[in-house]
Simulated assay, not measured.
Amino acid sequence: MSLNKSLFVILAVLAIVLVMVAHETSAYDCLSGKFSGPCWAWDGEQCRRLCIEEGHVSGHCSASLKCWCEGC
């Protein structure tokens, strides 16, 4: 097996593992049903409070300006 093929296989396996890990960690988060509008960094406490009121563990604002609840 040439060096290029070996490197490709290693990178492909690493990419698959990263996708699986990212999916596993995001599987436990869901969008808040009560939070409206963009979720800026200073809205974090409101996002957490609303998520807890919805029955989730906590919540956080994402880079996409959405309020994600943890422990869904």
Rank of each mutant, 00 (worst) to 15 (best):
M1A: 07
M1L: 09
S2W: 00
S2V: 03
L3G: 01
L3D: 02
L3W: 01
N4W: 01
K5A: 11
S6Q: 02
S6A: 02
L7M: 05
L7V: 10
F8R: 02
F8S: 04
V9Q: 04
I10S: 06
I10G: 01
L11I: 13
L11R: 04
L11V: 12
A12I: 06
A12W: 02
A12G: 10
V13H: 00
L14K: 00
L14Q: 02
V17I: 14
V17Q: 02
L18C: 05
L18K: 02
V19I: 11
V19Y: 00
M20E: 03
M20D: 02
M20C: 04
V21I: 15
E24C: 03
E24H: 06
T25F: 08
S26R: 09
A27Q: 10
Y28M: 06
D29N: 11
D29R: 11
C30R: 11
S32N: 03
G33Y: 01
G33I: 03
K34N: 13
K34D: 12
K34S: 15
F35C: 06
F35Y: 12
S36F: 07
S36N: 14
S36I: 15
G37Y: 07
G37D: 07
P38L: 14
P38Q: 14
C39Y: 05
W40F: 15
W40D: 13
W40Q: 12
W40E: 10
W40K: 14
A41N: 13
D43Y: 09
D43N: 15
G44Q: 12
G44F: 01
E45N: 13
E45I: 13
E45H: 05
E45F: 11
C47V: 14
R48K: 15
R49T: 15
R49I: 13
L50P: 02
C51M: 11
C51W: 04
C51N: 08
C51P: 03
C51V: 12
I52S: 05
I52C: 01
E53T: 15
E54A: 08
G55D: 08
H56R: 15
H56I: 07
H56G: 04
V57M: 10
V57L: 13
S58G: 08
S58R: 09
G59W: 00
C61R: 03
S62F: 09
S62C: 04
A63H: 09
A63N: 10
S64M: 07
S64N: 14
L65H: 07
K66W: 03
K66V: 07
W68D: 01
C69T: 14
E70R: 08
E70L: 13
E70G: 04
E70A: 11
C72P: 06
C72N: 02
